[in-house]
């Protein structure tokens, strides 16, 4: 079977700050890494492959340097990789990202199962997966925390709900987004690194896609627009207490009493 995994390169640190006056983002260093949630998606695919004949393709949409995450996926056991990159994809929101990915996935050939991470650490919307499924017109199950069985024509998965788990049998092809509970990702292997060092990464650009209407991609294809970004508001009404431990606990007890918690 053919498994496609969607992965994304994200900033290496979440410690971004924003300059209050200029509204400019300050990022320490410029290092990037694989979205941590996507490691679970790759691991899920690799385990399925160990269990059953499968070919794993990974796809990412991003700038040329995002090729690094494809290479990393090779070191975990992915077979083929594809980088979807073009200036026409710039400024894509969730809808335009999902659309471009669905077009790219179609270019890569046949797929039975598409696996996405639960969410990304930069966009953190958890929406791209379900929107890809909609564009490809296939069913999806989000928040999968366990794969029970892969059959010839279907997959049996466990969806995590707030108070219950729902076990669903879904006909292939389908898309799932996986939670962290599903497995522990392996580390990239040195052996595979050597073996895959010259394995190519296929580049897909706008001109390779079936739909060549520029209005469907990047900023043109994005219904949502960012008006501005700004730092989270700080709480201004705060009172600071300092002193000896027993004084502080007395003061706190009185305060809790005043607030009617005691």
């Amino acid at each position: 079977m053919n498994i496609t995994v969607c992965i994304k390169q994200v900033p290496g640190t979440a410690e971004v700050e924003i300059d209050e006056k200029t509204g400019v983002l300050i990022r320490d260093g410029i290092d990037s890494k694989m979205n941590p949630y996507d490691l679970y998606a790759i691991e899920t695919a690799v385990r399925l492959k160990e269990d059953k004949q499968a070919e794993i393709s990974v796809i990412t949409m991003g700038p040329p340097q995002a090729e690094a995450v494809i290479k990393e996926a090779y070191m975990m056991g992915a077979d083929k990789g594809c980088l979807l990159t073009d200036r026409k994809f710039a400024g894509a929101d969730v809808l335009a990202t999902a659309y471009a990915l669905s077009q790219g996935i179609t270019q890569m050939g046949k797929y039975d199962l598409i696996i996405c991470g639960k969410m990304t650490t930069d966009g953190d919307t958890a929406q791209v997966g379900p929107e890809i499924a909609e564009y490809l017109n296939i069913p999806h199950v989000a928040n999968v925390r366990k794969i029970h069985k892969i059959c010839d024509k279907s997959v049996i998965v466990e969806m995590n709900m707030a108070e219950s788990v729902e076990i669903q049998e879904v006909l292939l092809p389908c898309l799932i987004t996986v939670e962290k509970d599903i497995c522990q990702p392996r580390l990239p292997s040195f052996k595979l690194k050597m073996k895959t060092s010259d394995r190519p990464v296929r580049r897909i650009t706008f001109n390779d896609l079936d739909d060549k209407n520029v209005m469907h991609y990047g900023l043109n294809g994005s219904p949502t627009q960012v008006l501005k970004i700004f730092p989270p508001p700080a709480n201004t009404t705060n009172e600071k207490w300092e002193g000896r431990g027993d004084e502080l606990s007395k003061k706190l007890a009185d305060k809790l009493h005043e607030l009617k918690y005691i």
């Binding site: 969730v94 958890a126 929406q127 379900p130 709900m161 219904p223």
Partner: peptide, 22 residues
């Protein structure tokens, strides 16, 4: 919710419109 986060993007994509999460 689990259901909302799965359903909203699907329906937003069906109408080719925007969805802002959380």
């Amino acid at each position: 919710t689990t259901v909302g986060r799965s359903l909203a993007p699907r329906i937003a994509a069906r109408f080719r419109t925007g969805l802002t999460a959380d």
